[in-house]
Amino acid sequence: MMPEIFSPIAVFDSGIGGLTVLQALKKRYPQESYVYLGDTARLPYGTKSPEIVQRYSQSLCRILLNYNPSAIVIACNTASTHALEAVRALAAPLPVIGMIEPAAAAAIQATKNQHIGVIATFGTIRSGVYEKELKKINPHIKASSQACQMLVALAEEGWSSGPIATAIVRQYLDPIFDTAEAPDTLILGCTHFPVFEALFRDILGSSVTLINSGEAAATQLSGITGTRGQIKMLATDDPERFAANASKFFDQGLVAADIELIDVTAAS
């Protein structure tokens, strides 16, 4: 049986971090329908090999294609890094939007001192994808990067403030910003990281521009025609935990009954 939602924008992530992207999409396109798939059975993606991330992303894409989507958004920087072209090939001719290119373009536009900081998962930082994209746009850009893997776990637990979160965020940011010529722009290169935005601003002040990769990616969609305004939530494991944690990310109260459990092995 085909799902009831009609031509939604399909969004997938390794877990709940991509809900920050869904929020940005909803804000920009409130009339659209959405289907969101969080791969809670296999998170995190940030510590996994490129080959595994690509395989997992393709399996999520196959599931979402059953919903007759109008577009697919890869709401995960790690998956965008390693699987964008594979998902585009699988979903063609549908538009597929990743996180990297839009965020890099927004950062280039925002910076005044030509120095951009990047924080992301280990996999994204190790790939060097942001540095490559930034220098492709502007070869004179200086990029300073830091892997912040522990922030993903903090975000999933809802620990986005307080002394523990503050100490860990400072530990990650100091190598980039405690310098004479610090960046004036910071790419939040993981969709979990916007939940720490208030903390980032407290530590960095107003002189540093924060680039939310989800908000940047939302500007890339055009020609979408859905009109129903529905949202369907899917998870590959533990809907109760997904709902409880997702409510910390998403401006809509969720309970386990709102989350449909998907057998990801059927699409692998």
Rank of each mutant, 00 (worst) to 15 (best):
K132Y: 04
A104M: 07
L234R: 00
F177D: 02
T219P: 00
L134I: 00
C190S: 15
V169D: 03
I211G: 01
I164C: 06
G229N: 12
P194S: 12
E131D: 09
A235M: 00
V118H: 09
E197T: 11
G223D: 11
I224T: 03
Q171S: 07
G205Q: 14
R201H: 12
E215L: 09
F177I: 05
A235E: 00
P102M: 04
Q109G: 05
S213F: 14
I119H: 10
F193D: 08
G123M: 13
L199T: 11
I203D: 12
I108L: 03
N113H: 04
T179K: 15
K112F: 05
S207L: 09
L234G: 03
P175V: 05
V152F: 05
H140V: 01
L154C: 10
Y172H: 15
A147F: 06
I164L: 14
G229A: 08
T111K: 00
Q220C: 05
L210P: 02
I203F: 13
A198V: 06
T225K: 15
Q171G: 07
S207C: 15
A103Q: 03
T121W: 12
G158F: 01
I164T: 11
G123V: 13
A182M: 09
E133Y: 01
Q230C: 10
S127I: 09
E215H: 09
R201K: 14
D237V: 00
I224E: 13
T225I: 10
D202L: 13
L204D: 02
A235H: 01
P175A: 06
S207T: 15
E181F: 00
S161D: 04
Q171Y: 08
R228C: 09
A143I: 00
R126H: 12
